[in-house]
Amino acid sequence: MSDQQDPIAEVADRLLNIEAEMRRIRVWSFEAPSPEALASNQPFCIDTLDFTEWLQFVFLARMKVIVERGHGLPAVSGIAPMAEEHFRGRPEAGDRLVRELEAVDRLLSDS
């Protein structure tokens, strides 16, 4: 038997870390965007949401459903580069958040 943790459990742990880090750097929102903003067809809802809103209300929300229901994980992820770009030149330091997203990208791309 392998000592490796179940990929779904690892992703679940990372999702919790992402939420905790977003709260720590104060980019967690307590008010959801409008349904219209969430319905964007653009990647990362770039035309209607801030990146951190997309991360919270689209990515985390969808990934939590996948994890909770035991659905198959996405085969690829590339969110960390978008996060790096978002936090470049901003007052809040997103380094830890980017590292957590890199870990999720690796987990999803390797599973």
Rank of each mutant, 00 (worst) to 15 (best):
S40Y: 07
F44P: 05
W28N: 01
E68F: 09
E92M: 08
D105M: 08
Q4G: 14
M63Q: 09
A20F: 11
P74M: 00
T48Y: 11
V65D: 14
P91L: 15
A80D: 05
R62T: 14
E84M: 05
D6W: 02
I18C: 03
V67P: 01
E100A: 05
D13Y: 08
G94I: 01
P35D: 11
L60W: 02
D6P: 03
N41T: 14
S34V: 07
P43R: 05
C45D: 02
L73D: 00
E84N: 07
D47N: 10
I8D: 00
P74I: 01
F51C: 03
A39K: 08
E10Q: 15
E53N: 06
L108E: 03
R88N: 06
D110I: 10
P35G: 09
I25D: 01
S111L: 12
R14C: 10
P81S: 02
A75D: 12
N41Q: 14
I66T: 09
G70Y: 00
E102Y: 10
P81D: 01
V76Y: 13
D105I: 11
E31M: 14
R96G: 13
E100L: 08
Q42V: 13
K64G: 04
Q5Y: 02
L73H: 00
I66G: 01
V104A: 03
L97I: 05
R62L: 12
S40V: 07
L38M: 07
S2P: 08
A32M: 05
A80N: 06
L38A: 04
A9C: 12
R23Y: 06
R26C: 09
I79P: 00
I79W: 01
F87P: 00
E84V: 06
R24P: 03
L60F: 03
L38R: 04
D47L: 04
L49Q: 06
